[in-house]
Simulated scan of single mutants.
Amino acid sequence: RSAEAFFTEVLDQTGDGFVEWPDLAAMARELATRLDLEEPAETRLYSAFADWWRELQAELDTDGDGRVSRDEYARAVPSLAGPALIRVAEVLFDVTDTDGNGVIDEAEYRALFRTGFHRTPEGTAHEGYTRGAFVRDFLAFMTGRRRSTPYDPLLADA
């Protein structure tokens, strides 16, 4: 999908043609609700999204109006996976991995994505979602580089 389509379908939660803090806060709220987070996990997630917002503003808001337009976003797509977005992915992994074993198991996956693991062709269940794989997939999705069956509905309607 194009950067413009990703911007409209996922990032611009309010539908006003810009990304601002309320758009990212809506994403954080959706994730916190899905995972039924309590303090301090909820605060960690919101803080990570707030840091990402500040990074987006600093890097992409070229006209200084305090928000990111679709055009500003599309021009910057190649450089979007900055430290703050990586931190969002890491925090999301941590709060999803409720047993702290370093792998998102099937129940944790279902809580986040509201769907089960995909089955392999042999019919065996996926063993888990490692931190590295999760962060890589989240970054690829959030920078608009790749569609993702579980991620598409996760934030598109937050």
Rank of each mutant, 00 (worst) to 15 (best):
R44P: 08
T62W: 08
V88M: 12
T96G: 06
T143V: 09
L35W: 08
L56N: 01
E122H: 07
R147F: 12
L37S: 06
W52V: 03
G144Y: 01
E59R: 13
D65V: 01
E55V: 00
D137T: 10
A50G: 09
V91M: 07
L31E: 09
A74E: 11
T43F: 07
E108C: 06
G82Q: 03
P83K: 10
R75C: 11
A26T: 07
D94E: 15
A41Q: 14
L24D: 06
E90Y: 00
Q57I: 10
A76F: 08
T33F: 10
A28G: 11
R131W: 01
G102M: 06
M142C: 08
S148P: 09
F113N: 02
N101E: 14
L85E: 02
G100D: 09
E38G: 13
E55S: 11
Y129Q: 12
P83Q: 13
Q57S: 11
E59W: 05
A107E: 15
P78H: 03
A89I: 04
A32E: 12
D65S: 07
P22K: 10
D65A: 01
R146D: 14
A41W: 11
W52F: 12
D97A: 03
S79E: 13
T115I: 02
R147D: 15
Y129N: 10
V68M: 02
D97W: 04
L56Q: 12
V91Q: 05
A32K: 05
Q57P: 01
F117S: 05
T98C: 00
I86F: 01
L35M: 09
E90K: 00
S148E: 08
T130A: 09
V135I: 14
R75D: 15
V103F: 15
G66F: 03
E55H: 06
D97K: 04
T115P: 01
P83D: 15
A58Q: 12
F93L: 06
A107L: 14
G102K: 02
V135Y: 04
H118Q: 11
F49Y: 15
R110L: 11
H118I: 02
G100V: 10
D61N: 09
A32L: 05
P22R: 13
G116A: 13
R87E: 15
F117G: 07
G66V: 04
A26V: 04
G102I: 04
A58N: 07
A41H: 14
T124Q: 13
A111D: 14
E122I: 04
